[in-house]
Each structure stands twice: as structure tokens, then as C-alpha cells.
Design a protein around this nucleic acid. Structure first.
Length: 362
DNA sequence: AACCCGGGGAG
DNA sequence: CTCCCAGGGTT
């Protein structure tokens, strides 16, 4: 099969828009051009799938119907509505940015690119997405899906995440944005990547760009874009389910750094012995008993954590919180509203399930 | 069980 | 620029 002539950037928009008009999913944030709503949806959609986002989007906007409401809310309320979504720095940044919008931009989401980029949590992608969708500005919005589509259409080899290949794709992607309906075009490009031009076994037979796709013509659609892989790092950690009168001990991390501001189970790197030492030193809990309760693995990109959870009676000792902002004794079944690291959230869910089923007596 | 995927901030 | 942060889906 012969390689077709390289596509002109302007070839993409008509194909993608025609496809999008027939196949667009009806999503809550596609029924509005309110920049605040679009912004919230775009932030939630970072690293998170559509089906997961929908209920959070609706609950969030119900609680904070406009920028003013979000800015006026305490951070805890915002984190509470984010609980379970993960990547909580997004919520902190959203909250901080809402306050900037109210103090510096009169409560209206700015329509100036540089002003938008200056908002916390808004990078090149989010700025382009919100401004094109809400205000019809001709700006690219290139997420991982879009980069994959562009790399295949133009048969761009090499590392797509950075370097010369990335710069070339950014340039092509910018040229390809049409003056008319740039927001729909951006959504079409990303949706095409997520629904048709998927990472493995792409559905080229139903792709509206097949006639101009270099990767397809060369049979390289599985090889482009090239994936870079670092060796995963392994870590062993232990966490404590400290129980007292049916409640479990949570501690709140400092506002910055890893898992900033989140409620977590007491935990350490290392094994049971180090966990008990940490409970003594940081929480003043002099327990010597620890019964293994569960083990799970928690992976984030190329980091692998093996986390073992231990049941520890909390009757003895007092609890303080060196290294933490606060401690709380929480009903395991009612911990959903706390913003917690994903693995700790899973452990608490398992604990609540055991308690509910009567498999564990306290 | 093994495979894959990403956007923003800090410096 | 590079490095750091920190969850989930598909096969």
C-alpha cells in the first residue's frame, strides 16, 4: 500500500466535525457554554473517564452553581465533594482559581488567554479547551487522545511526549483548528481518539480520517505513537486501621506535598514493626498488637506500592498527631465524604464491608 | 495478571 | 528543559 500525500492540517476539521455531528455523546457539559461549567468539566476530565465524572460534575455544580459559590466555600467542602475522584490537587487548584476569578476578574471567567493560563491548575490544554468551547476562540486543546490521532495521521515517529516530535504535533494541531466551531472541533478530535483511534487495535475501518492517515497506510497504527516506558519502582508500605468503639483513626496531612490536605490512615514505608513504631512516635499509641487485615497493590503510572493493612486496637494510649494537622475518629461506613488517598479509601471500604457483614467484631 | 494511559506545577 | 505528583481502564 502506498503512503498517501501528507494531509493538510485543514483536512481534519471537515471530516471530524461531520463525524462528531453524528456520533457525539450527549454529556451534561455539552448542554452548556457557561465557561464555569465547561471549566469544571475539563478539570474533572483530566485523568478521569467520562462515566466517572458525570455524577461528580452534577453534584459539584449543585453545591457550587457559580464561581462565586465555589470561591465562598471552605476548602473542606470542596474536597468533600471531590472525595473519590482522586488527584485532589485539581480540587485545591479549582478552589484557589475561583477565588482569583472573583478578586481579579470580577467573578467572570476571563477570556484572555494569558489571564486564564495564570489561573492555578490551568495549563495549555485546559486553557485551550475552555476558551474554545465556551468562548469560541480558535485555540487548540491537545490531550493525550488528540496527540495520538495527530501522530498517526501524519505518521510521526519517535517520542511524542516531548522533543521535536511533540513540537511538530503542536504546530500541526494548532494549524488544524478551524475558525468555525473550534470548540466542537477540539471535542471531536479528542473523542475520535478516545472512541475510534484508541491506543491498541484502533477501529480504522470506521475512522473518518482513514483516507489521510499515514500510519494506517503504512500499517504502523499500532506502533505510533511510540510509548516510552520507565522501569517501575516498587515500594512496601503498611497502614493501620486503629479501631476504638467502632471508629477508625484518620489523620489529616499537611496542606502541601504528597496527598496534601487529605485524610489518611496512619502509615509508614516498611513492615509491621515500623508501623507500630510510627504509631507510638507520631500518635502516642503504645499498641503492640497488629493483626493483618488486608493487602492490596496500588499502582500509579510506573510506581507500584504493596500496602498491607493491620488492625490495631486503639484503647490504649492517647492520640496526638505529630506530622499531621488533625486526627479524627470516623465511622468506617461514613468515611466517604473524606478526601482520602485512593488505596486508603479502598481499605476503609473493605473494613466497613467486614463490619456490616459481621465478620469482624470490635 | 499484564497491559496501557496524562496533565499541571515546581525549579 | 527535567522531575515530581499520585488512579484507573482494557484485554
Amino acid at each position: 500500500m502506498k503512503t498517501p500525500a501528507l494531509a493538510h492540517p485543514a483536512d481534519l476539521a471537515p471530516r471530524l466535525l461531520r463525524w462528531f455531528d453524528q456520533h457525539r455523546r450527549d454529556l451534561p457539559w455539552r448542554r452548556t457554554t457557561d465557561p464555569y461549567h465547561v471549566w469544571v468539566s475539563e478539570v474533572m476530565l483530566q485523568q478521569t473517564q467520562v462515566t466517572t465524572v458525570i455524577p461528580y460534575y452534577e453534584g459539584f455544580l449543585k453545591a457550587f452553581p457559580d464561581v462565586q459559590a465555589l470561591a465562598a466555600a471552605p476548602l473542606d467542602a470542596v474536597l468533600g465533594l471531590w472525595a473519590g475522584l482522586g488527584y485532589y490537587s485539581r480540587a485545591r487548584n479549582l478552589h484557589a482559581a475561583a477565588r482569583v476569578i472573583c478578586t481579579k476578574h470580577g467573578g467572570r471567567f476571563p477570556d484572555d488567554y494569558e489571564a486564564v493560563r495564570a489561573l492555578p491548575g490551568v495549563g495549555e490544554y485546559t486553557a485551550g479547551a475552555v476558551l474554545s468551547i465556551a468562548y469560541g476562540m480558535r485555540l487548540p486543546a491537545l490531550d493525550g487522545n488528540a496527540f495520538r490521532v495527530l501522530a498517526r495521521v501524519w505518521g510521526v515517529r519517535g517520542e511524542v511526549q516531548r522533543g521535536p516530535a511533540r513540537r511538530r504535533l503542536v504546530a500541526l494541531g494548532r494549524e488544524a483548528v478551524p475558525t468555525d466551531r473550534p470548540g466542537d472541533y477540539n471535542q471531536a478530535l479528542m473523542e475520535q481518539g478516545s472512541q475510534v483511534c484508541v491506543p491498541r487495535q484502533p477501529h480504522c475501518g470506521e475512522c473518518c480520517l482513514a483516507d489521510i492517515c499515514v500510519a494506517l497506510a503504512q500499517g504502523l497504527q499500532e506502533q505510533i505513537p511510540e510509548s516510552r516506558r520507565a522501569a517501575p519502582t516498587h515500594v512496601t508500605m503498611s497502614a493501620a486501621l486503629v479501631l476504638r468503639r467502632g471508629k477508625v483513626l484518620l489523620a489529616r496531612r499537611p496542606p502541601t506535598g504528597v496527598w496534601g490536605g487529605l485524610w489518611e490512615l496512619p502509615n509508614t514505608e516498611g513492615d509491621e514493626r515500623q508501623l507500630l513504631a510510627s504509631l507510638r512516635d507520631a500518635f502516642g499509641l503504645a499498641s503492640s498488637e497488629a493483626v493483618q487485615f488486608a493487602r492490596l497493590t496500588h499502582g500509579i503510572m510506573n510506581r507500584r506500592v504493596t500496602l498491607t493493612a493491620y488492625l490495631v486496637p486503639g484503647n490504649t494510649g492517647r492520640s496526638r498527631a505529630s506530622g499531621h494537622e488533625a486526627v479524627a475518629w470516623v465511622d468506617p461506613a461514613a468515611a466517604d465524604g473524606h478526601a482520602m488517598p485512593a488505596p486508603h479509601r479502598k481499605l476503609l471500604a473493605r473494613l466497613a464491608e467486614h463490619l456490616r457483614a459481621g465478620r469482624l467484631a470490635l
